[in-house]
């Protein structure tokens, strides 16, 4: 059986909020190392991969592999009943037809209990090869969100160009064009505000802004975001959590 207690329900709330507009039904795969999820959007353009390590739970118990097939809209409805600071306990049997969720406030004088029906989801699983990326950029997640939102007003796609000292986001559309250039810099007082670039070789790739704007819903999970780019390889957008991550992969636009 699964029993997993999360100190802050907000972690799961933010994870679900980050991915629910990209995928609707998905398996939460539970085993002794933690809870993981991999799902592609309907058009097979984007993929989300989420991992919550057992270290993020206390206690965590999962005797055997359990796949929890969950409709994320349903889960969102139930999680609305939880405060971010509530303690959240997830429970499921070995071959479950429902997932039990208990929310307790920090004073421990209120507890709410919900059961959510599970579904059988036959999901494709993709093998994601280890990639040595040409460029890795770490920037504030709020900055990335602002850039994607602003440029999406002008165009459907953005070109990301990483060079040794800066990363440039540019787009052009019917009403005109726009670009944002971020120079590499280190903010010693507020490290989360820094922009860093690790470059093997300069790279320039074009991506759909609709998906990037969607990924940015994960900004609440982490003050920084990591973009990994290589020519003709899906973009990796990673939000790190204390005991896990949410990663998005986005297929590039190709050809002229």
């Amino acid at each position: 059986m699964l029993e997993a207690r999360l100190e802050q329900a907000g972690v799961l709330k933010k994870v679900v909020e980050a991915i629910k507009d990209l995928v609707q039904d998905c398996n939460f795969d539970c085993n002794d190392s933690g809870i993981a999820l991999q799902a592609m959007d309907n058009s097979h353009v984007a993929l989300v991969s989420m991992s919550l390590s057992h270290e993020g739970f206390s206690p965590y118990r999962c005797d055997r592999n359990i796949a929890l097939g969950i409709n994320l809209n349903s889960l969102t409805k139930v999680l609305r009943a939880a405060q971010n600071e509530d303690i959240l306990t997830l429970k499921a049997a070995d071959s479950p037809d429902s997932l039990n969720l208990v929310f307790e406030n920090t004073e421990r004088d209120r507890s709410s209990e919900y059961d959510i029906k599970l579904m059988d989801i036959d999901q494709e699983h993709l093998g994601i090869p280890d990639t040595d990326y040409s460029a890795t950029v770490v920037l504030p997640s709020a900055e990335f969100q602002r850039i994607c939102r602003d440029l999406s007003q002008l165009s459907e796609s953005v070109t990301i160009e990483a060079s040794k000292s800066s990363v440039k986001f540019s787009c052009s559309g019917d009403i005109g064009n726009g670009s944002v250039n971020l120079r590499q810099h280190q903010d010693l007082e507020k490290p989360d505000q820094s922009t860093s670039i690790e470059l093997v070789e300069p790279v320039s790739l074009t991506f759909s802004l609709k998906y990037l704007v969607n990924f940015c819903k994960a900004s609440a999970l982490s003050p920084t975001v990591k973009l990994s780019l290589s020519t003709d390889v899906p973009l990796l957008v990673e939000y790190k959590m204390e005991a896990g991550y949410v990663r998005f992969y986005l297929a590039p636009k190709i050809g002229d």
């Binding site: 097979h44 353009v45 993929l47 494709e124 993709l126 074009t206 590039p252 002229d256």
Partner: peptide, 14 residues
């Protein structure tokens, strides 16, 4: 104009 690629051509189903 550029075509949107799909992940199937980059990642293999396992």
């Amino acid at each position: 104009s550029q075509q949107q690629g799909r992940l199937d051509s980059f990642f293999q189903t396992i």
